[in-house]
Design a protein around this nucleic acid. Structure first.
Length: 490
RNA sequence: CGGGGCGUAGCACAGCCUGGUAGUGCGCACGGUUUGGGACCGUGAGGCCGCAAGUUCGAAUCUUGCCGCCCCGACCA
């Protein structure tokens, strides 16, 4: 077995692929473009789900489930939406197979052709708004605040584990409101939820912004996003929140009676984050030794490794280790005691580093004599010796400290790799080196397109907190009032 | 869909050019010695060499076709 991971500095994408596989997060499946999320990777996803779900509930949302299949006629109803997704839809045309009359195996039964094709959902606005039609009659039915956790299929040309797969897992919130302002507030509220989640849980600093019209969700009036910077200097869109206006309520003829007894179309939002967040988590923090997990998302936060020669020694160590294990567990810390004698301690150290376990405790006979335990932290790869009396308290503090330190490190990286650029030459030069580029843009799709064609850089977002300043578009020289974020992106 | 690469043991690969007994490392099983940063020795199990056809006395190796996967582009969360 090759022990070392590829180095980030030498081949970032190979490093990424290897870390996903070696840390047991996911693997490619027998189905092209589709991944198998392995138990360890899924455990992290479950932690993300659980935290997000709590935040959705706290903001008044409830969960529901809508069908996997979308009748083609639904998808067609909102024109821009249909156009945007048409190219990447999987289509169900038949409902039955039969024995191959020419020999072995099965063939599609031509007599079982569907009258209307079914699309595997690339997103659920259409089925959901078709449903909302019957759920919404009065202003008293609003706001309708619904979320669903489900899978999605978008037929991508090229896939990468977690970052872009044909099938992926996500949540999609779909809300309906009486007023435009309420819907805009909801869109912004959920963007805030995503940003808070990214920063507090993934320890990932994000820029909150608006997408340019080019990058807008198909069918949206406005798309908000959070953008993060990965260690290779490329940007990753980590979440989106859309203000849909009345586009879907009109297309699906959803109306409610307002307080004045007049018919109105409700205002809509939708918002989602996906298993792509796993990719963000990996690429933001991990190093050449493996995963680095922020404690809040680590399936195992503390691992205790006994170091012993004889079963008698192990028994003595266990006697001291088990109270630590029990106390941590009782305090809600996810802890594992690894006394498996199949592997030696050195192997375990490397393995837990690869898997990103935040804190490792090692206890040997020497520690027993001294009443101590060795505490190793994953993010800095540092070790210290701590008295058994203090260790529980120490771990609690350390977990919090590490969560903050990992965020701080990512924030510093982003700050060190964000550049204000004012000339086209500087722009072209900097984009090769990576990072976020803050530059003036004249606001036209033409300029955006030309910049993309010449440099592969896209406008990641127009930051919500952009300062107003007079400037000239870095490409066209036309006047501009604020800087937008450019980067090459995943 | 274009351009490149690869399909041989669970995994990573060699062998192919120049046709002739299917190999190495890791992993796995058993035994022993080890154990504070990925231990070592010994014994052993494990293969339709991607699929199909062709050439040949004989094909992992040569020819043709097909299938699949990976990487680089165009498309995208």
């Amino acid at each position: 077995m090759s022990k070392a991971l590829p180095k980030r500095s030498e081949n970032y994408s190979e490093w990424y692929n290897e870390i996903v596989k070696r840390a047991d997060l996911a693997e490619n499946s027998a189905v092209r473009g589709c991944m198998v999320i392995k138990p360890y990777g899924y455990a992290i996803w479950e932690k993300m789900q659980s935290a997000l779900d709590d935040m959705f509930k706290a903001t008044g949302h409830v969960n529901a489930y809508f069908p996997l299949f979308v009748p083609k006629s639904f998808l067609e109803k909102e024109e821009e939406h249909a156009e945007g997704f048409a190219k990447e839809c999987a289509v169900v045309t038949h409902y039955r197979l039969k024995a191959n009359p020419d020999g072995k195996g099965l063939v599609v039964d031509p007599n079982a052709k569907l009258e209307e094709e079914l699309i595997i959902r690339p997103t659920s606005e259409t089925v959901i708004w078709n449903t909302y039609k019957s759920w919404i009659q009065s202003w008293r039915d609003l706001p309708l605040l619904i979320n669903q956790w489900c899978n999605i299929v978008r037929w991508e040309m090229r896939t990468r584990l977690f970052l872009r797969t044909t099938e992926f897992l996500w949540q999609e919130g779909h809300t309906a409101h009486v007023t435009e302002q309420e819907a805009v507030e909801e869109t912004e509220r959920m963007l805030g939820v995503y940003a808070t989640f990214a920063e507090d849980w993934i320890a990932l600093p994000v820029i909150r912004g608006l997408k340019s019209p080019n990058e807008r969700f198909a069918g949206a009036v406005e798309t908000y996003c959070i953008e993060a910077l990965m260690q290779d200097g490329k940007a990753l869109q980590a979440g989106t929140s859309h203000f849909l206006g009345q586009n879907f309520s009109k297309s699906f003829e959803v109306q409610f009676v307002n307080k004045e007894n007049k018919l109105e179309h409700p205002w809509a939002t939708s918002w989602g984050v996906s298993t792509r967040l796993m990719g963000a988590l990996i690429m933001a923090h991990s190093d050449d030794n493996g995963l680095v997990l922020p404690p809040k998302l680590a399936p195992v936060q503390v691992v205790i490794v006994p170091i012993y020669k004889t079963p008698e020694d192990l028994a003595k160590i266990s006697e001291k280790a088990m109270p630590i294990f029990e106390q941590l567990k009782a305090a809600g810390v996810s802890v594992k005691y690894d006394d498996d004698d199949k592997q030696r301690s050195g192997w375990k150290f490397a393995e837990y580093e690869l898997k990103g376990v935040p804190i490792r405790l090692a206890m040997g006979m020497r520690d027993l004599e001294n009443g101590t335990v060795e505490v190793a932290r994953r993010d800095t790869l540092t070790k210290e010796t701590v008295s058994l009396d203090d260790v529980i308290d120490h771990i609690h503090k350390l977990l919090e400290e590490m969560q903050a330190a990992i965020y701080a490190r990512a924030l510093k990286f982003r700050e060190d790799n964000t550049f204000s650029v004012d000339t086209w030459d500087q722009f072209k030069d900097q984009i090769e080196k990576g990072g976020f580029i803050l530059a003036h843009w004249d606001g036209t799709a033409e300029t955006e397109e030309k910049i993309k064609n010449e440099t592969k850089a896209t406008i990641r977002c127009i930051p919500l907190d952009a300062v107003e300043e007079d400037g000239k578009c870095v490409y066209s020289g036309a006047p501009s009032s604020k800087r937008v974020v450019f980067a090459r992106a995943y």
